[in-house]
Amino acid sequence: MSNKILIVEDDVVFCKLLTRFLSKNNFQVMDAQNGRDALELMELNDFGFAILDYRLPDMNGIDILEKLKSKNQESKIVLITRYGDEDIATKAIDKGADAFVSKPINPDDLLSVINGLR
């Protein structure tokens, strides 16, 4: 499985910090702050993993999830939800998400989830 990972989250600092953390853990990380940029990256790359925020400025994480899965069924997808978003998490699993994690994100815990999907 490719170690290439896509982070889609509109908070630049979140992307910066998580990129740093995952890079140190031997992932090749790319990030996008909106759905449009994420789709562009998906056209050009094959991602083994994706970490998708549900709430994005131009679309939601489940839209991206569906596109990613239709391109590569093997991609492992973690959806990030907010406190109280259980319904969204359930919907995401139905649509093919491999896991979901709720904010706040502890990077070590997220890494355990990702490694568990290999």
Binding site: D11, L17, R20, I80, K103, N106, P107
Partner: peptide, 22 residues
């Protein structure tokens, strides 16, 4: 560090300083 404890808020903890990032 805890990322996104709420929208646009992160909790930074002692020991999180990484020179390469600053």
């Amino acid at each position: 560090m805890k990322l996104s404890i709420s929208k646009n808020v992160h909790l930074v903890e002692p020991g999180d300083f990484e020179p390469t990032d600053h």
